[in-house]
Nucleic acid binder design. Structure first.
Lengths: 264, 264
DNA sequence: CGCGCTCTTGAAACTCTTCAACCTCGGTGG
DNA sequence: CCACCGAGGTTGAAGAGTTTCAAGAGCGCG
């Protein structure tokens, strides 16, 4: 597992007209405009009053292998990342060295926002599978005020969104039992797949059972038991990481989302 | 309990030279410069490159009485608030109508950030005691990009801070037992009092036991039992809401903060 | 092929919640 | 002035849910 600076080695991005020779890693030159996630990663493209400036500073990194770090807890904060493909987890370490997962990040989602206000990343980010990200270099927003109103707003909105998600997770962790937590977790994942126009009721979990447990504040064994119980109840069909949601409505009811389901 | 719009009735702020006649509510005219919390609420005043513009838009509201709402869950997002005096709690409602507390807000701290990216406040904010706030009208940061770099940065930093605090709370809720939660809660409060140059080891809790429980994901009875146990262990002395921390170090150890204690 | 990791399952142990009772205190009204 | 009342707080005992410990099955990979 390499460290951030090596791991995220940036490509030289070719400008629109300029034709550069292929670099060693032979990665595709990319533009946000070409990206299949553009509408998700940069929503409201009508809002593009930066004249393309925002896009110019976003660069795609070389792919991360499974188990590779995007950044580590304590690293100097450089930039925020948008996931292009694959999946990441962010986590910190507890006193006894146990890994405590704070989030999973799928394509079209941003990673690293929590480091924004300070000099360092407060958690580590690691690839759960072959993963590609786009790097949004911000240095310190403090020292170098962004002159890109569009991107700034987008970041603001994402942070606010993450704040609300976090609060909802806190409610989940304080008040919900194991069944409700797993149900909510599956429904949440389902919605995130749907937002990418992927099958919402049939997907592959990018994380292990024990990672689900760490995220939801449950022991692995409990996660496993709940999965088994859900299958007996015909709510889901699961085979390893492959999951079919058989009864989405019942599952949603079980999850019992209440505060604000609507992401606005 | 009144609604936001009535509750937060703004004063006309007098300009520096202009002498206006007292208004009916006879509240003191205030400036950020005069505020005892200025260095906390607006840290790094050397950084004041807005030429005072940021300060101009901040207005102090009339005091809220205990039990009065600052805003309600679902209200349209108008502004962020800085607490001047008193204390607030923010909370949502669960399916069964139970109140779920997401945070306590003491003087010098901001309230309402989680509504920033959307049109509405995702939680309610209510005064735990006589409370005064300063209103920072932002409308929608989206539509009306702030031209106040200093204030914008301050908000950014606060959101990021809140993100990290939230993640730490999630760790607390997933992994810590009742003793550890209460210890962490007291240590956190202690630090927040200290940052205002108030006694860090002797303070009055602005919230009820059941509110502590709601915040920490514990039953009231559990909170009460832990308080009793801590007193038997001579970690604290508590009489109602009045708390003395007798053994700050032991309490910190018990709390076992690990991820990032340093607020940067 | 076997080793290790993941996942599953069972039984015991433990923590926290729930239910119920009681206490204290401050406010209110007789 | 005192009794009453309700809210907040404390304490005990029973019960539920989850963790922990232990063992075994499945599976991929060197």
């Amino acid at each position: 597992m390499e460290h951030d600076e090596q791991a995220v080695q940036l490509l030289q991005r070719s400008s629109a007209r300029e034709h550069t020779k292929p670099c060693q890693t032979s990665l595709p030159r990319t533009h946000c405009q070409d990206c299949s996630l553009a509408t998700l990663c940069l929503p409201n493209s009508s809002d593009f009053d930066d004249g393309g400036a925002a896009i110019e500073i976003v660069k795609r990194s070389r792919p991360l292998k499974r188990g590779e770090y995007l950044y580590r807890q304590g690293d100097q904060f450089n930039c925020v990342f948008a996931v292009c493909s694959g999946a990441l987890k962010t986590f910190g370490l507890s006193d006894d060295g146990e890994e405590l997962i704070t989030g999973f990040h799928l394509p079209s989602e941003l990673v690293g926002l929590s480091g924004m206000g300070s000099n360092i990343y407060p958690v580590s980010a690691l690839a759960l599978e072959e993963t590609q990200v786009c790097r949004i270099p911000l240095k310190q927003l403090d020292e170098q005020p962004l002159e890109l109103p569009y991107l700034r707003r987008r970041l603001m909105r994402c942070m606010s969104r993450e704040l609300r998600d976090n609060q909802q997770m806190r409610l989940l962790l304080s008040k919900k039992n194991a069944d409700e937590r797993i149900a909510a977790f599956l429904i949440d994942l389902s919605a995130r797949f749907r937002s990418r126009d992927l099958p919402a009721n049939q997907f592959r979990l990018p994380m292990l059972r024990n990672e689900i447990g760490s995220y939801l504040g449950l022991a692995v064994e409990t996660v496993s038991r709940v999965f088994t119980r859900f299958q007996q109840m015909r709510l889901i069909a699961a085979e390893g990481k492959e999951v079919h949601i058989l009864a989405p409505l019942e599952l949603s009811t079980l999850a019992g989302w209440h505060l604000d389901d609507s992401p606005i």
